[in-house]
Every structure is written in structure tokens, then in C-alpha cells.
Write a protein that binds this DNA or RNA. Structure first.
Lengths: 240, 240
DNA sequence: CGGAGTTGTATCCATGACGGAAGAACGCGG
DNA sequence: CCGCGTTCTTCCGTCATGGATACAACTCCG
């Protein structure tokens, strides 16, 4: 079951989406709306209409010229390029979060100040942004977990990363440039107690290969994981 | 222009989306598919068909019972509840990234190891995940920036947060439980030089009110911002 | 001056999605 | 044994989407 999404930009009742982005890009490459629509296997008339609609909401997108050398053509405006870049950024951000590994911890809310809560989980207590229910799932995205050398871990008061877990490396999955480090964060496990590592809850952290080497990460090495409360979101737990 | 998305879960050619989630939730509340479809203003026949299709891809979702007390009814399976929870987590994660403030820095790629690059920007050099182009926009999400007390900032080698900026607080926008802190990260600005703060590039950081107080953050106070390379994504810059 | 290859604009039509309606099967309760 | 409110199944009308086609307008070029 793989997660996905469809990115959108809304403005003035009109929504710009993937389909529109590919159309604009095709116009940019082909130099004419006709060729673009043709190349995409879409009808010229609809594409033309679509661009008209988009322009009323997002401002001028293509400069059209009819007649002339080669019969004319269309070019993207600077506004259109900015729109495309904005759309790309949104999609990149969403792609990141949709694709990245995540750790899910079930727990219950034990304190709350507005949206900010303290959630008690098997891995200890976590500060997270949570909706107004009692039992929640805390979602920790692997790319939001920072790992530290225990000797040099920042003191609890000196940083805005308010969640801190002492743990030990359980596993390292190396990729090309990044590595997924699984950290056992069982609360009361004594160092050297093998059984506890196998059983304790884990937290996945996505770090660069570089960091793996700088921190000399290896299975069973102690490590400190920190994560920001504002990057930690909770959702209602399923009441099975 | 506000960003948005449509979350999806794909499995076996079928895609589960918002519409389906609301249908399942309505069945859960109403206790019968008939009442659910009716309440949503959707046709029973279509809703029934849709659930059938979803079940062939995602496994059993509703236990149907026809006849009996009250004519029967439908209840969600545990599988359906897990699916809903999974969908909620995805949506929550996407909502977070779509809604959060972001800082965009233009720059050029000066080094690359696979997907991991070093990008030179006005705010200094940043390690980020970037596609294979020369000029990029680096996107830094405010909830991925961690702030530190300069005196207690972790040494560069002892943490997996590989990007580090020394700066000063430019502005603090307090919310209910969180605050958006704008940090001036100009490279060579001398402390006390007011003009440089106004001109230098800024980085937005989303932290809890709590952290604002612990770190005694206030305009013009020095602060260290760190962020992970794996949470920093770049996209091609628009070639205007 | 005509041809070429566009941009505009209008119209037709195939397809799919959806609601509405109608009817059969079901099983508990009165 | 009958009625009720479901779940199932089928058929039809409607609407939105989008391709296909046709045609006028335009302007540079040979």
C-alpha cells in the first residue's frame, strides 16, 4: 500500500494542478500551444480553454502570437515560470513527507496547552501537536530526527528540540548518500542487556552517510536522538 | 495562492482517497451503508459499488448483515479502521508540510555525492538533497529548523544536523502554543550592526513558546540554527 | 499574392461518473 | 406469518469532462 498525493495551488476559485504544470512545461518546450497539446495527446481546444481559465485566476501565463514566422507561437511568461517553480517546491516538499520512513507510536495525551500536548508512549513522553482526543498515534518522520554523540548532546534547556531520547543503534541501512538508522529507545534498558534492545520500541532516523561516519554509528552504540515538537504530529488512534 | 493536496493510498490498482474515507467514517457513525450514503447525499448504489471495489483491493472493510433487527446494518472491520488511521497519518503529515512556513534560498550546486549536494546560497553553504541541475532553490521548512543557545550549541562534529547557521533573532511572531522565529543569518554581519540585520537573508523557524522562553529569545539576540541535510530539499530554480 | 502554421472559437460526440428508482432477498420481531 | 428496514442488483437519465472537427483570423515568407 503506497502513499501518494496530488499537489494543488488554489487561487481565485481556480486550482492549478499536475496536469496544468505538464501543459505549461510542454508549451515551454514546444514553443507553441498547438504542438504542446498535440504532443501530450490532448485536444488543442481544451488546452486553450484551460489556459484561459488559469490566466483569469493566476495572471498572464503565456504570450501568444498568431501569424508570423512559422505561423506564430506561444511563450511562457515570467509569471508562469514562478508559478511552476512554486508548484515544484510544493510537490518536492510533499514528496519528501509522503515517501520518507516514519515511526508510529501509540500513546495517550497527559497534558495539553492549546495544540501542544505531552503524549505518554512506550518510548517515553513526547511533546507533539495533537488534535483534541485522548488516545493518539504520534508520527515521527525519519528525516526530522537528529542524532547526537551522547558525550556532546546538547543540554535539554539549550535547544528548541524538546524531545530527547537516549538509546542505542539497533540497525543501519545504508543507501547511496543517506542511511536509515534504527534506534532502540526503550526506556529502562540497561546497557549491555541484549534482550531489551530486541524488544524495545525503535525510532527511525534518516541521516547522511557522512553523519554515520562522523558519529561512528554502529549497532549497539549509544546515541541520543532529538526531535522538535513542532515537527511531531499526532492523529487520533484507531479504536479497534 | 494557497497550497493544498489530495492524499491517496494506492493498492492493487485501486486508490483510496478523501471521498472514500468520509464514506467509511459515515458508515461507522450511521451503522448502515444506506443511512451513510443518504446522509452524505450520495447514491446508495454507487457507494455500495465503491466499497465493493475497495474491498477487492484493500481487503474486507465492512461487515454487512441484511435482514434481522432493524433490517440489518454494516459495521467497519478492524482492517478498515487501520486503513482509516493510516490515511489520517498520511494526511496529517502532508497537511503539516503544506501549511508550514518555508524559507526559499536560491543557489548553485558546488558539490555532489549522489543525491546529496552542497549548495552555495546568500546565507552560506547548505547541504541538501537536490536533483541533477546547477541552479536550485533550497527549501527549508520552518518546522525542521532547530534553534540553540550559542553557548550550548552542539559542536559541528557531534550531531547529525549538518547545516549550521550563526545568526540573530530578527523577529518573533507568537501564536498560541508555537512561535515563528525569523533569524537573520547574513554571513559576515558584525554584531551590533543594525543595517546588516535588516538586509541579511532570513531563516524562519517554528518553535514552541516554551522554547522561546527557555532560550530567552528576543530580537537581536544571537542564536544558532541547525537543520538536517535530509530534511532540506532543493528543486530546480526557475530560469526567468 | 498565396501558402503555411499558428491562435482563436464554436459545435458535436464518446465516455465515464453519479443520482434516482425499482425490485429481489434476507432475517428478526411482533 | 407478515412487516420492516436493511443489503444487493440492475437499469436509465443526467451531467461533466475532454477529444475531434471545422472554420475564421492573423502574419511572416517565398
Amino acid at each position: 500500500m503506497d502513499p501518494g498525493f496530488e499537489a494543488r495551488l488554489r487561487e481565485g476559485g481556480e486550482t492549478f494542478e499536475e496536469r496544468d504544470a505538464t501543459l505549461l512545461r510542454a508549451v515551454d518546450e514546444a514553443g507553441s500551444l498547438n504542438a504542446a497539446a498535440n504532443g501530450l495527446g490532448r485536444s488543442y481546444a481544451r488546452s486553450h480553454e484551460r489556459i484561459d481559465d488559469l490566466e483569469t485566476a493566476f495572471g498572464p501565463l503565456v504570450e501568444r502570437q498568431r501569424g508570423g514566422a512559422g505561423g506564430g507561437g506561444s511563450r511562457l511568461t515570467a509569471n508562469a515560470r514562478r508559478l511552476l517553480a512554486r508548484f515544484d517546491r510544493l510537490r518536492a516538499a510533499l514528496t519528501g513527507t509522503a515517501a520518507v520512513e516514519e515511526t508510529v507510536l501509540e500513546g495517550r495525551v497527559v497534558a495539553r496547552e492549546g495544540e501542544l500536548t505531552t503524549v505518554e508512549t512506550v518510548a517515553g513522553s513526547v511533546r507533539a501537536l495533537a488534535p483534541d482526543v485522548d488516545r493518539v498515534q504520534v508520527v515521527v518522520r525519519a528525516d526530522s530526527v537528529t542524532l547526537h554523540d551522547p558525550a556532546e548532546a546538547p543540554p535539554a534547556g539549550g535547544t528548541s528540540a524538546r524531545n530527547r531520547f537516549d538509546g542505542r543503534v539497533a540497525r543501519i541501512d545504508r543507501g547511496e548518500a543517506v542511511a536509515l538508522v534504527t534506534v532502540a529507545v526503550g526506556e529502562g534498558d540497561a546497557p549491555g542487556d541484549d534482550a531489551s534492545v530486541a524488544d524495545s520500541p525503535t525510532l527511525a532516523a534518516l541521516v547522511t552517510i557522512d553523519s554515520v561516519e562522523r558519529l561512528a554509528l554502529a549497532p549497539d552504540r549509544p546515541v541520543v536522538a532529538t526531535l522538535k515538537a513542532t515537527a511531531t504530529r499526532a492523529t487520533p488512534a484507531p479504536d479497534v
